[in-house]
Amino acid sequence: MSGMDERARLMDYVEKLVPERPPEMQEMEAYAAEHRFPIIGAPAGYLCYQIARIAGARRIFELGSGYGYSTAWFARAVQENGGGEVYHVVWDEELSQRARGHLERLGYGDIVRYRVGEAVQALRETEGPFDLIFNDINKEGYPASLDVIEEKLRPGGVLIIDNMLWGGRIFDEADRSPATEGVREATRRLTTDPRWITTLIPIHDGLVIAYRR
């Protein structure tokens, strides 16, 4: 069996271990599969939910939220942690409205706060601190976002960054594109800065989990 077949088999196994999602979330997953819309998927979403529960997170900020799939996992955690708020931030008004519909039908209407605009600037303008920040913006913007994130994340808070394996492009030494270099630089900074305790988890397209000392 090839390496790719083994990985597909492993990912299928991991996905089957995730408890069944509500019909509304299954609809969001089906839409993503049909339209090739990039969402974090059930295993990574469930991991984000678990981390938010462990952290007792009650204030979460998402930098780049799509139509609310990852937001739903975080909102569930915040609700179970006793309530709070999750900031859903996207450039696109249509995506924001689609997310609002999904999240209200899931029962998270009183938890989610919606922002339409550039995500890092939205974080800069929002009062902190936050217990958890999730970063899924354009990859070339990852390094520059870290200073703002550190300012807004409480000591003992958690940063989660998506796409840190970047489809394997980080392993191609000839790839010097801004996006790939952004992923590399953010990884280097978080794994060498003593202010962070950082692990790269090879689930989905790679999630970095970083604890702010």
Score class of each variant (00 low, 15 high):
2 S>R: 05
2 S>C: 07
2 S>H: 06
6 E>A: 12
9 R>M: 04
11 M>W: 09
12 D>Y: 03
14 V>P: 00
15 E>D: 12
26 Q>C: 04
27 E>P: 00
28 M>K: 11
30 A>F: 00
45 G>M: 08
47 L>V: 11
50 Q>P: 00
52 A>Y: 05
54 I>Y: 11
56 G>N: 09
57 A>M: 14
60 I>N: 03
61 F>T: 10
61 F>N: 13
72 A>S: 12
73 W>R: 14
74 F>Q: 13
77 A>C: 12
80 E>Y: 08
83 G>H: 12
83 G>E: 11
85 E>L: 01
88 H>K: 01
89 V>T: 15
90 V>M: 01
95 L>S: 04
99 A>E: 00
101 G>C: 15
104 E>T: 08
108 Y>R: 11
109 G>S: 02
110 D>A: 13
117 G>P: 01
120 V>Q: 14
122 A>C: 08
124 R>T: 10
125 E>I: 01
129 P>M: 09
141 G>C: 02
144 A>Y: 02
152 K>I: 00
155 P>R: 15
156 G>M: 02
157 G>R: 12
161 I>S: 11
165 L>M: 14
171 F>V: 04
172 D>A: 13
173 E>V: 05
174 A>L: 06
175 D>W: 13
183 V>W: 11
188 R>K: 15
189 R>Q: 09
190 L>Y: 04
194 P>A: 03
196 W>E: 08
198 T>G: 08
202 P>C: 08
202 P>T: 08
203 I>N: 08
205 D>K: 11
208 V>Q: 07
